[in-house]
Simulated assay, not measured.
Amino acid sequence: MIPFAKYHGCGNNFIIVKEQDVLGKDYSLLAQAVCCAATGIGADGLIVVREEPELEMVFYNMDGSRAPMCGNGIRCFAAYCFDNGIRTEAVYPVKTLAGEMIVNRIETSPFLVKISMGKPSFRSADFGVLDGSETFLAQELETTEGTFTVSSCFMGTVHTVVWVEEFPSESAASQLSNHPVFTEKTNVNFVKRMDSKTLAIKTFERGVGFTFACGTGACASLVMGIRQGRCGSKVTVRLPYGRLIIEQLPDGEVTMAGPAVRVAEGTYIQEEI
């Protein structure tokens, strides 16, 4: 039996466990089991809280694949650490596969936190593109539902941004996410520009599908918007279950501010994994 908590960040939801409660488990198999809505708890991903030798967020998608980082996930990670007395100070670092992220708690009720997300990389080599180009910007990719102009970067994990008037089907999104040009697949963000300070985003996450929110995707959408002259350096991202404030600072650092909500706590009773 495994103690767990479930949190959501703007609708992007996660099962969170302490590492000491899952020692010896295969995290990939555990993620698939607990995230399955039919036979498990149901979530977009699994977060394992590693406290030693330093605080670290270990993140797995619902399909069992490990991802370097998750923007909404790290806000939920911060809320879990606060609720469980793991970290009660307002500002502290968190280790991830994408590097060190800085948590800055703004409020506790409701729980709001700003995360320093690092700087984007536009180097194709950093996100595994096969075409040999130095960058992968304003490229056309074919799907069975038409041609899409895409631009990719690494923002905590690989992201591809597509500016649209209307959100496309899941089939088109999946074809872009799994396009053979991306050696590690890609997350795909379909972005509507409402005005220079407001974006609406729908993200297809590799290993998950369409989700209600994606923090790293919102950050990637902002930096692409700035690069292409579509928005200013600070935007509000409108999502079905909340809003994020994304800003790129003069030094290139990107910050994300938004909520995290505890949904449930309990014990996961499982077959042996």
Rank of each mutant, 00 (worst) to 15 (best):
S174K: 14
S174I: 07
S174V: 07
S174T: 11
S174E: 09
Q175T: 08
Q175E: 15
Q175K: 12
L176H: 05
S177M: 06
S177Y: 05
S177F: 05
N178A: 11
N178Y: 15
P180V: 14
P180E: 15
V181F: 14
V181P: 10
V181H: 07
F182R: 03
F182Q: 01
F182D: 00
T183C: 11
T183F: 14
T183K: 15
E184M: 13
E184W: 12
K185G: 08
K185A: 13
K185F: 13
T186Q: 05
T186K: 01
T186F: 08
T186V: 14
N187C: 07
N187T: 07
V188R: 00
N189R: 10
N189F: 03
F190S: 03
V191N: 02
V191L: 01
V191C: 04
K192F: 05
K192G: 00
K192Q: 08
R193G: 11
M194T: 11
M194S: 04
M194V: 12
S196I: 06
S196H: 12
S196G: 09
K197H: 15
T198P: 09
L199F: 03
L199R: 07
L199D: 04
L199W: 03
A200H: 08
A200E: 10
A200Y: 00
A200Q: 12
A200T: 13
A200I: 11
I201S: 05
I201V: 15
K202M: 00
K202Q: 02
K202E: 00
T203A: 01
T203S: 02
F204N: 00
F204Q: 00
F204A: 04
F204M: 01
E205P: 02
E205N: 01
E205M: 00
R206I: 03
R206N: 02
R206S: 01
G207A: 09
G207Y: 08
G207S: 09
G207P: 14
V208G: 02
V208M: 06
V208R: 01
G209D: 06
F210K: 04
T211I: 09
T211Q: 02
F212R: 11
F212I: 08
F212H: 12
F212E: 07
A213Q: 02
C214P: 13
C214Q: 11
G215M: 05
T216F: 02
T216Q: 09
T216N: 09
T216M: 07
A218K: 14
C219W: 00
C219L: 01
C219S: 10
A220L: 08
L222I: 08
L222P: 10
V223H: 13
V223T: 15
V223K: 13
V223Q: 11
M224P: 05
M224Y: 03
G225W: 01
G225F: 03
G225H: 06
R227E: 11
R227D: 09
Q228K: 10
G229W: 07
G229C: 07
C231H: 12
G232Y: 07
G232I: 09
S233E: 13
S233D: 14
S233Q: 11
K234S: 12
K234L: 06
V235L: 05
V235W: 04
V235S: 06
T236G: 09
T236V: 14
T236A: 09
